[in-house]
Design a protein around this nucleic acid. Sequence first.
DNA 1: CGGCAAGTTGAGCCAGGTCAACTCCGGTGG
DNA 2: CCACCGGAGTTGACCTGGCTCAACTTGCCG
Lengths: 256, 256
Amino acid sequence: MDHPVIKTQCAECSLFYDNDNFCAKLSGQELCDLSDKSRPSKLKRGETIDRITTEKWPIIGITSGVVSLQHLLEDGRKTIAALFMRGDIIDLRSVGKRHHGKLVALSKSGICRLAPDVFEDIVAANPKALHLVWENLREQALRATDHSADISKKHAQEKLASFIFECSHRQSEDIKDGSVKIPIRRCDLAEYLGMQPETVSRCFHDLEDRKIVRVQKLNTIIINNLAALRRIANGDKDASGVRETKPRNIQVLKSA
Amino acid sequence: MDHPVIKTQCAECSLFYDNDNFCAKLSGQELCDLSDKSRPSKLKRGETIDRITTEKWPIIGITSGVVSLQHLLEDGRKTIAALFMRGDIIDLRSVGKRHHGKLVALSKSGICRLAPDVFEDIVAANPKALHLVWENLREQALRATDHSADISKKHAQEKLASFIFECSHRQSEDIKDGSVKIPIRRCDLAEYLGMQPETVSRCFHDLEDRKIVRVQKLNTIIINNLAALRRIANGDKDASGVRETKPRNIQVLKSA
DNA sequence: CGGCAAGTTGAGCCAGGTCAACTCCGGTGG
DNA sequence: CCACCGGAGTTGACCTGGCTCAACTTGCCG
């Protein structure tokens, strides 16, 4: 009697059937207790999880899609500070008065609001579950750190290259042919990388002109030259220096 | 027999005598077990904790000073991706092959390399300790997220203003007279905020010209106008628009 | 007191932001 | 089936905040 009465909603949820997600680590009993008091739901692109909800349900598991954490400045400038995807557990307990941003879905997404008290009991009692959720939090912290490093010192193209790698690492299924799915829109991408949609567009084209990637559909790109892309992402000047297809002197010729 | 044989090294360590740091949450026995197998040490500015050390001692508590996590790009550009200060517990377990940066001290600092196995046992057995270290990790993740939001969309002055607030929140003793200690050097500050030392300098002067802060010593500033500084940090254009004390037309006059 | 690293100041330049016009695409209704 | 619409993405032209480089001053430590 390992799984006494698993609800169908759980049996079909990636938090359970992905082997290294939270619910997969639980005993049948724990899973039942948790699912009894938790609230799975769906979000459409643009929907936000409001403050009242996050106060009552500070622990949110992402089952599919992409959910962003957004910060807003006084004058309307917006930033996407973090992206959460399948398997991430967002823990907002005791964030309390600390000013934190809004959670906004960037695509159709599935979430599960986990009952905080049950969650806490489980984590205290089940070392595997603790380990997993801890690991996930560490991963989030590392990602945030890497991301701020990327944003602060890299040029537009380098950021974009890094982002492509981030997507390829995080995408659920490994697709072998070098294609990478970009799970968010251009304008969201721009906000996440701290640049303008126009610049994102230009950078994609630069990369295409240099035959490093091919933009198949808006949300699917193919990497043609992995090594070069890696060099750019790592900030190798030799790789990105080649950017201008046309050398300077063309300008000089024109003005002469 | 609450504290059977606390070593003097522990009695004098902020991880123990700061009430809400890790070692303060341990039973006498736990503290002894941990301190028996742990290694406190001192770092001078510029010293780095090398890979071999972090592999053997992936858990490091900061007892004083400032330790940074630095990322390096191929062409030598350097970024400070995170700052750790007194009370922070750096957990590098299973970061493993994931490319992560170097840990470098930015000032004289004290650290304690905690024995990972003992640490793990304690965390599993002692809910208070678990809670504290968890909270610290969440704090680190939040800080990293906030920081990347700051860096990506704010202007130089706004970043600096935010940083001043970050310092004032994190400084150990609350100094009431509105003075804030900047615990790191200008060039490190620049790297942390993703800007140039020259720009940092100019921004400090702008803020001084506008009477918002006073730079008392290189590492101590006084906030004169908290509200204005807050507005700038939050990206209020009205506040930062006032930047130029001298309006443009002075230039025109000159050239006329 | 000398020497070096850190910080500051000034001048010029460029990557990327801004603004505006245009294209592309999916959905909707006649 | 096509005409229409609105939002997303792209393209071009221009402008500027902050980077760069170089010279200078300051402050710290032996």
